[in-house]
Design a protein around this nucleic acid. Structure first.
Lengths: 255, 255
DNA sequence: CGGCCCGCTTCCGCCCAGCGGAAACCCGGT
DNA sequence: ACCGGGTTTCCGCTGGGCGGAAGCGGGCCG
């Protein structure tokens, strides 16, 4: 009865992609059985595909026998359109040097924050954001900025679902969040106080296409500090605004 | 006669990977016919695979109808083992802040330099290195360092082939290169003078596992400046050495 | 304007690569 | 030695993949 129970209608390509899709930030390293489970493939199918992907370099095998994304995919990934990163990097480097803190740039992708660049030095505390990573809009400084300028309909839809609550301080009630977003729009900046990660606070401002105060908000730039240094955040606002202005002015064309 | 001339013995997975492999730094954006050519697939096969890859996000279609690596592959690529990048980033950020120049970390992969991290500010001149990119060993500062400590057999094999000559200043004669590498080993650092890119000079030092002067050389850290500022390079050596030491001490374990 | 060329998209008869359950193997723990 | 869990291998069965060729669209040229 071998081969008798195959799943019809699913292409090989979709299976290969399902294998790749099994990996994410919380599952960066997976044993074969987990790859099979997460990709919805029978063990031996997963095994065949994983072997070929590994031979090519898309996956790599760890010393412990698990698999993770391989160097070749990383190299390939670097070819993806990176104008945001290229444009923002030098500005973020200078902001990082000026503040000695974590700084990052994010865009809104779907209903999440997507971090496209981050710069930090040795003194900066470890934070949750990661280049290529995603976090909720409502619990992050950059996310609140992106949400605040996204439009009533988007906000309405976003708030209609059950919101993540990574810490007890996260705002998840629609009413409170609405007011918070109004405040963000009025002030021109957003902050978080241990809403994403205990021990971390952030400040973020919008990046507007073309700079100035009226361009469309296309990204957000933020700084994250240890909660013990939260009183420093207001002092960082001017530098943050200058960075956002500089990046925004470079966006006139595409991105 | 449709289907009569198929290429037997080639798996779908290998075809999918061939499509992805069609993209590289010099061909970051490709029309469908070029994808087909470079992957060695008939046009309609390439078309089918590209469509599925695009639907998944591995490729993306530009406004002009060409294809390039998509965001999702970039996100996935960020999951690749990145201990070099993570370890080196804060050190490079501080070196960049201190020097106001391009700084990067590279390892030797195969017979090439592979750049794993780079940091620069707004004042730094554009340079040839790119995260995820590769350049020749013999024409780059970091490459000379990596080559100098790679062992006689490797050097011999490397020099036996015809060497790239990106600029008229590139050293390509084995005798001269041997002497250069001896000098690098004696001094403990390498430099280039418009050997990779006209208008750019570099200085690089080895990163040794565990730091110190006797650990195995496992990477190189370098700084690139405009040729007009080449007289500044000696002044940057102490900072470069400190950075290499700091990174090397963090390598004790894996990487 | 019509014809030509090029790149892309669609189609469908043909065929072989892929499937996956099950057995075998390996390794670590008790 | 036994057991259990994870991995690797095998092979009868089958449906997805192949790719030449036709069709389509757009740009260029006479």
């Amino acid at each position: 009865m071998a081969g008798g129970a195959r799943q019809p209608g699913r292409s090989v390509t979709s299976r290969v992609l399902a294998v790749l899709g099994a990996f994410d930030a919380d599952h960066a390293e997976l044993p074969l059985t987990a790859v099979a489970e997460r990709s919805g493939l029978p063990l031996s199918t997963a095994h065949r595909l994983v072997a070929e992907l590994t031979a090519w370099g898309a996956l790599t095998r760890t010393a412990g026998g698990s698999y993770r994304v391989g160097l070749r995919l990383w190299e390939l990934g670097q070819l993806a359109p990176g104008s945001w990163r290229e444009l923002a990097h030098p500005w973020l480097q200078e902001l990082s040097a000026a503040t000695r803190e974590n700084v990052h740039l994010a865009v809104c992708d779907g209903t999440e924050v997507l971090y496209v660049e981050k710069v930090h030095g040795r003194r900066a505390v470890p934070i949750a954001s990661r280049v290529g990573g995603r976090l909720p809009l409502h619990t992050t400084g950059v996310g609140k900025v992106l949400l605040a300028w996204r439009g009533a309909e988007f906000v309405h839809t976003y708030l209609a679902r059950e919101l993540e609550r990574p810490t007890p301080y996260a705002l998840t009630e629609p009413g409170r969040l609405h007011r918070e977003l109004e405040e963000v729009r009025r002030r021109g900046w957003a902050s978080t106080a241990e809403e994403m990660t205990l021990g971390s606070c952030s400040l973020a401002v919008p990046v507007r296409r073309g700079g100035g105060a009226s361009g469309r908000v296309v990204a957000a730039v933020g700084v994250v500090v240890a909660a013990s240094r939260t009183q420093e955040l207001p002092r960082l606002l001017p530098a943050l605004l200058r960075t956002a202005e500089g990046i925004g002015r470079g966006v006139a064309g595409g991105a």
